[in-house]
Simulated scan of single mutants.
Amino acid sequence: MERVVEVMDLDAAHEVFSAAYSRIRIDGGMNGSMMRMTSRMLGPVRFDRFEGRIGLQATAEPLGNYVFGYLESGRIRYSSDGEDRFVLPGDAFLSAPPDRPFEAAIYDPQTSLIVLSQAVIGEVAAGVRFGGCRPVSPRAAAAWRSTCIHLRDEVLAVFEDCPLVVANATRLLVATTLATFPNDSSDETPRDRRDAHPQALRRAIRFIEDNAARDITAADIAHAARVSIRATQLAFRRHLDTTPMAYLRRVRISCADADLRAANGSVTTIAARWGYARPSVFAAHYRDAYGVSPSQTLRSG
Rank of each mutant, 00 (worst) to 15 (best):
S95W: 08
P109L: 04
D9Q: 11
L151F: 06
L113N: 06
E72W: 04
V155S: 00
W274T: 01
S80G: 09
M30V: 04
R145M: 03
S228M: 07
S117M: 07
A218N: 12
A20D: 14
S280M: 06
I270D: 11
I149P: 03
A175Y: 00
A179H: 07
D288I: 03
F102N: 05
I229T: 15
A143N: 05
Y286L: 11
A284N: 11
R202N: 11
V165I: 03
L248M: 14
R40Q: 10
I121R: 01
S293D: 15
S22F: 05
A196S: 15
N183V: 02
P62Y: 04
M30S: 14
N31T: 08
A142I: 05
A277H: 00
F47D: 14
I24R: 07
R261H: 09
A231H: 11
E209I: 01
G291W: 09
A277W: 07
S266C: 08
S295R: 13
G131E: 14
D161Q: 10
A126K: 11
W274Y: 15
A204T: 07
G29K: 04
E72P: 00
S33N: 10
H239C: 01
R46S: 13
L94H: 02
V4A: 09
A119H: 08
R25Q: 14
S228I: 07
C162R: 00
G127Y: 10
Q296Y: 15
A256W: 12
A58H: 09
Y247D: 13
A19G: 03
E83P: 00
I221D: 00
F17H: 05
V281E: 13
L94M: 14
G291Q: 10
S79W: 09
F47H: 15
A277I: 01
A20H: 03
L178N: 11
S300Q: 15
A175S: 13
P89V: 04
P279C: 01
A272K: 03
E15I: 02
A218T: 13
L56G: 01
T176P: 01
A235E: 15
F159R: 04
S80D: 07
M41I: 03
S117T: 07
G43N: 01
L71R: 03
R134G: 00
S295M: 10
A92D: 15
M35Y: 02
V165R: 06
N264E: 15
A60P: 02
S280R: 13
D288M: 14
A231F: 08
P62D: 08
P138F: 04
F159V: 01
P135W: 13
H285Y: 12
E72F: 11
L63R: 02
A105S: 15
G52E: 12
A212R: 06
E154L: 03
F68W: 09
